[in-house]
């Protein structure tokens, strides 16, 4: 089963702490990512640029409004996502508890939602409409 791990971190934390600390942390994290890959647990993921680079889109009064910045203003911001392949929730928790990134900021783990039924129903509706 897939679990999406959202890694949160204080913006600029990596830039403001001593370089040696950042280097050690980043090296540790990449080493662990490699281990997850090797064991078939790393199903994808990406680091994100800082929240200052974000734009948020909202639908308001019948049109899309674009605003500067992230959706939620929180102390820690989403810093990256990792898609984990794990047996069950405990396994996902166990794998992410060992990820050195947890020392830099919290991880939120969410099980992936299975939309296959919803997609099938939608396809049925759409083909009915076509007919």
């Amino acid at each position: 089963m897939k679990y999406i791990c959202l890694g949160y971190i204080e913006p600029n934390k990596l830039e403001t702490q001593p370089e040696a600390v950042t280097h050690a942390m980043v090296d540790e994290c990449f080493t662990y990512d490699d281990e997850l890959r090797k064991n078939g647990h790393f199903a994808g993921g990406h680091a994100l640029q800082g929240p200052q680079s974000a734009a948020t889109l909202r639908f308001e009064n019948g049109k899309v409004v674009v605003t500067d910045g992230p959706y939620a203003e929180t102390k820690e911001q989403l810093g990256g996502i990792l898609i984990l392949e794990a047996r069950d929730f405990n396994h996902a928790i166990e794998l992410m508890s060992k990820h050195p990134g947890v020392k830099a900021g919290p991880f939120e783990i969410r099980p992936a939602a299975d939309l296959s039924e919803m997609i099938q129903e939608s396809e049925r509706r759409r083909s009915d409409n076509d007919a």
Binding site: D88, N90, H91, E94, P111
Partner: peptide
């Protein structure tokens, strides 16, 4: 059910 929390006794570590 949905997050698939398993039925198990945790490992010694946990």
């Amino acid at each position: 059910r949905e997050a698939r929390i398993p039925y198990q006794v945790p490992s010694a570590e946990e």
